[in-house]
């Protein structure tokens, strides 16, 4: 199934801009889909129901959407999420927007696909706290879901861990950014962004080196960095990707997030410790919150000697990466 990418995206063929320096910002023609989980209407619709269904959590009060809500930038607008029970997760809820384009999911990149990612939060005690051994039989008793799973995934054994993950991933794959002012600019409408934002763009790709990591259509190159948010050697703190394996390059590193719709998804960074884009840009372009003594600080995080005016220009540019919310009918009735 081809996902509709919006009129403006369809009108511009990618080859048209192949030689222009704007080409890398243009949306890819296709949304990546795994061979064994191609998008179909049935799969997307089923995934959407599951995504918003609170019965997937232990106390039936929390769904995927609780911490990744379409009206809250596909996040939850708090530093770290409160979920089932009194606990809070250790990290800021990352946006679902454009995750279809990512090859590593979660702040530490521990999942290699949306299918791998989808079941993690359901079982996590600080999120939905619902063991799959309990959830699968529970869903199997809901006749409406049995029918929908059989339609969406015929001959895949009905409702099981795999089909559940595939369905949720299918919906998440359709959560895509819309045409933002900067997209119009990149496609030739030179009046689509202000002079201030254009100055910011020049800094973004030049002096400030933002695009070294926030690169291409999704404004991330999928790289992992320690940007010096915490002091010293992180003893007893969140070690990020290093938790997966004790690899020197992974000490205290986290995923470079997309900047698409970034105005909708604060607070920022993996620990949600930054409220404004001005502060976020300042930290990244001035050598980190902590300048010295940070073990494995990224070589990209150095002082770019920006003025306050320049920072405000970069922020003005980042604001042009926000488009209207995608069209979405949030389900209110669920299978019985």
């Amino acid at each position: 199934m081809i996902i509709k990418l919006g009129l403006s995206a369809l009108l511009v063929s990618s080859t048209l801009f192949a030689t222009s320096d704007m080409s890398k910002w243009i949306r890819p023609n296709e949304v990546p889909q795994p061979k064994d989980n191609k998008l179909t209407k049935e799969r997307i619709e089923l995934g959407k129901l599951l995504y918003f269904d609170k019965r997937l959590s232990a106390n039936e009060k929390v769904s995927c959407a609780t911490c990744h809500h379409p009206k809250r930038g596909w996040t939850d607008l708090v530093p770290v999420s409160k979920a089932v029970g009194a606990g809070r997760g250790p990290r800021n809820s990352p946006t679902v927007l454009n995750t279809a384009y990512l090859r590593k999911l979660f702040w530490d990149g521990r999942a290699k696909s949306l299918e791998q990612q989808a079941l993690g939060p359901i079982e996590a005690d600080v999120e939905m706290n619902m063991p799959l051994e309990e959830l699968i039989p529970k869903l199997q008793k809901i006749q409406g879901y049995v029918k929908l799973f059989n339609k969406a995934y015929p001959n895949e054994g009905g409702i099981n861990n795999k089909t559940l993950a595939k369905a949720i991933a299918s919906f998440e794959r359709t959560v895509l950014s819309t045409t933002a002012p900067f997209d119009k600019y990149a496609m030739g409408d030179k009046k689509a962004i202000s002079k201030k934002a254009l100055k910011g763009y020049e800094l973004f790709i030049g002096k400030a080196h933002c695009a070294d990591c926030h690169d291409k259509f999704n404004f991330t190159d999928g790289s992992f960095h320690n940007i010096g948010l915490k002091d010293g050697d992180l003893q007893g703190k969140d070690l990020g990707r290093y938790n997966l394996k004790r690899r020197a390059a992974w000490y205290g590193v986290f995923k470079t997030p997309t900047l698409r719709d970034i105005t909708k998804s604060g607070p920022y960074f993996h620990d949600g410790s930054v409220k404004t884009l001005t502060e976020a840009a300042t930290i990244c372009a001035s050598g980190g919150r902590y300048k010295n003594g940070v073990k494995n600080k990224s070589t990209y995080i150095v002082d770019r000697h920006l003025t306050q005016t320049e920072i405000s220009q970069i922020v003005a540019f980042m604001k042009t990466l926000t488009g209207p919310d995608m069209k979405l009918d949030i389900p209110t009735k669920f299978p019985q």
């Binding site: 090859r103 190159d221 999928g222 790289s223 960095h225 390059a249």
Partner: peptide
Amino acid sequence: ESFNVECAIHPN
């Protein structure tokens, strides 16, 4: 055994 090489910083 055949294998994949990635970059630890840029896993794309």
